[in-house]
Amino acid sequence: MDHLRPDLTRALYQAMRTARDLDAEAVALQRQGVFPAYVSVRGQEAAQVASATALDPERDFVFPTYREMASALAYGVDMVGYMASHRALWHGGLYDVMASRFGAVNAVVGGPVPHAVGWAVGERLRGGDGVALSYFGDGASSEGDVHEAMNFAGVFGAPVVFFCQNNRWALSVPNERQVAGGSVAARAEGYGMPGAVVDGNDAGAVYEATAEAVARARSGGGPTLIEALTYRVEPHSTSDDPGRYREDTEAEHWRVHRDPVALLRAAVLAAGHADEADLAEADAEAAGRAEEIRDGVAGAPEPHGSELFTHVFRETTEELTRQHRTWQEEVEL
């Protein structure tokens, strides 16, 4: 941590602390019926915040899955608009994907990976120096789309950072039952790119590994596969019961002894980048911002029901028109 700038480590802590508080608020909103469902990021804040912070929001583009709330926050996305996706107010949320350069929530396992490669190839063809970063999990690493995308990127030298958050559980399936050889990063050699394994709960290590991969891609060095070893301490989603497939003591060990927010706090203090008063102020600011985002998304107006029928097809069909007419008749009764 000593070799990172003090302002950077403080920014990482601020974003991670805010993400932690917002995550707790989001779980509460789901329990209250405001969100139909939610996927927690607790325990993965370092992997997400540090990797997103290593990018340039003016040039690069992020392709997330459905669990990258902390990445969106660190990248500067409008968080009320982003969290609206969890409230099902609009397809992919209410924020501007193109202006934010942060893709819509993608629930297709492995889906963001080929999208990132396609964008990266297009960016290079147009003469830009942007880099795509694609998030995916250890479970997604078994999907064919991921292998094909990595092979394509390796062949064409696409400026992509493949960022695998290996949280040890592909929903209810542990690593040893779905990752042959035990390492996602080891597969990089077969695609002609560097592979790196990093402690996903060490924000400094994640930042440095990602910054190196981004610099390589931007300078024409091609793609990199990063495997950030972390842990999903909460259920896969709010509808999941992890007690059916893993021991509570396992999650508790990571929650208590490997908490990324606590680890970064200790490192920042040890490096002299902040004192307890500074971090107490950061904690208060984080809690306040999380509450503001919570209130904003909870109070956002619901879209008009007619939007069920818009943006389905470029040109409407007879069947869709019939359904719209039926809906109107029922609403007007």
Rank of each mutant, 00 (worst) to 15 (best):
A99D: 10
V268Y: 01
L263M: 12
H324E: 14
E332G: 11
P57K: 04
V198E: 02
V146C: 07
V214L: 08
S141E: 05
D202S: 06
D96P: 02
V160A: 05
G111Q: 03
V109I: 13
A203N: 01
A52K: 04
S237R: 09
R314F: 11
D295S: 15
R59S: 10
A196P: 04
R265G: 08
Y75S: 05
V155S: 13
R187S: 04
T238Y: 10
R255W: 13
E281Y: 10
F63E: 00
G128H: 13
P194G: 12
D2V: 14
L12F: 05
G139E: 01
L8W: 04
A186G: 06
G81M: 06
G110C: 08
V179F: 02
P57G: 04
G288K: 12
V256A: 12
G93P: 01
F309T: 06
A70I: 03
L269G: 04
V312K: 11
V331D: 04
R325Y: 09
T18G: 03
V108N: 09
S85H: 06
M1H: 11
L29F: 08
Y75Q: 05
D145Q: 14
Y82G: 00
A120G: 06
E285Q: 15
G221V: 09
A251Q: 03
A37I: 14
M69N: 07
T238N: 11
R101F: 02
D295M: 14
W254F: 12
L263Y: 03
D145E: 15
V77F: 03
T326D: 15
S134H: 04
T9C: 13
R265D: 09
M79H: 05
V49I: 08
S219T: 12
H304G: 13
D202K: 02
L22T: 01
E307T: 13
G92E: 02
G182L: 07
E250S: 09
P242F: 04
P114A: 13
L55F: 06
